[in-house]
Computed example of a mutant assay.
Amino acid sequence: MNNRKSLPLKYPDNFMVSVVITNLDAEMVLQQFIDEFSFYDFYSPQIGTDNDFVSTGIIDLIEQYYHWYSPLTTPAYRGLSSAYLKRIHCLKNDKCLTDAERSSKSKLLMKEWKKELPSLIRIPGRIKLEQNNCVKISFEFNLMCALCHMKPERALTQFMDEISIANIQAYHQFDPYISYRKRPYIAENSLPEDKREIREVYEKKFTALHTRMSKVKSFDQRVAAYQAFYKQWCDELLSN
């Protein structure tokens, strides 16, 4: 049995640069990502809403690929998950129920599932982060990770890996409107005066860099240039 103490989840460089420049808190960003996730919204939206198509797609994907990953879980866990997925699917397609009835029954079903699941798999309540921080892991987030056979730590890491203002800027370089709109959004609440001055300096540098990059056709070269620029900006913010 592995008794090693779990290590804090590390922030990828591009993620950390992005949150520092935009004056956001890394822990807050991750917690909001977790809290915004609702398994119920995906699987049991009211029929006729915009989420209905998304719900159907996710259900189809899990039903199609679920058994490919069965060796990673126990038979009891797979049986319980399959049973609840079928019950949710039946509720979703029961034309005799009103939206209110479907909503009420689905929420009760989710409560039952939440009560039974912990006896079959480990559900971590928190995940440690760098800088002595941590995030609370909701049941819904744990549930989707379990169904996809993905540890919550891996899901959070993949989310952070997707956050890079350098990549966004390089990708939208040749769309004048989108490129302008994709400049770093700065959360100015409680932004100290010295950091505002740094921001103003680097916004001017950004304009010059953006003009130079408009002549560069290579995506990789644009990404490298923006990464170096934002890293320098981040380092200056952290040193003040």
Rank of each mutant, 00 (worst) to 15 (best):
L80V: 14
S82E: 12
S82T: 13
A83C: 11
A83G: 05
Y84I: 09
L85H: 00
K86F: 01
I88L: 14
H89D: 08
C90A: 07
C90W: 06
C90N: 12
L91G: 00
L91I: 05
K92M: 02
K92F: 08
K95V: 14
L97N: 02
L97G: 01
T98G: 06
D99A: 14
D99E: 15
D99H: 03
A100R: 01
E101T: 11
S103W: 04
S106K: 00
S106A: 13
K107I: 11
L109T: 01
W113K: 04
K115Y: 15
E116P: 06
S119R: 10
S119I: 01
S119T: 13
L120Y: 13
L120V: 07
R122C: 06
R122H: 09
I123G: 01
P124H: 10
G125T: 07
K128E: 15
K128C: 03
K128M: 12
K128W: 09
L129F: 06
E130Y: 00
Q131G: 04
N132Y: 04
N132H: 11
N133Q: 15
C134V: 07
C134L: 12
V135K: 00
K136D: 13
I137E: 04
S138G: 14
F139G: 07
F139M: 08
E140W: 06
F141Y: 14
N142D: 11
N142S: 13
N142K: 08
C145T: 09
A146P: 05
C148S: 11
C148V: 14
C148E: 07
C148N: 12
H149A: 12
M150Q: 05
K151M: 14
K151T: 12
K151A: 13
K151P: 05
K151D: 15
P152V: 03
P152K: 04
E153P: 08
A155L: 06
A155S: 03
L156P: 02
M160E: 02
E162P: 04
I163E: 00
I165L: 13
A166F: 05
N167I: 06
N167L: 03
N167D: 14
Q169W: 02
Q169P: 02
Q173M: 10
F174A: 01
I178P: 03
S179H: 13
S179A: 11
Y180S: 09
Y180P: 01
R183Q: 15
Y185A: 04
Y185K: 05
I186H: 02
I186D: 00
E188M: 11
E188N: 06
E188Q: 08
E188D: 07
N189H: 14
S190D: 11
L191F: 15
L191D: 08
L191T: 10
L191V: 05
E193I: 11
K195S: 05
K195M: 10
E197K: 11
I198R: 00
E200V: 07
V201C: 04
K204Q: 15
K204G: 09
K204F: 15
K204Y: 06
K205S: 09
F206Q: 03
T207W: 02
T207E: 15
T207L: 15
A208K: 12
A208S: 09
L209W: 13
H210L: 05
H210D: 09
H210S: 03
T211M: 13
M213E: 04
M213H: 08
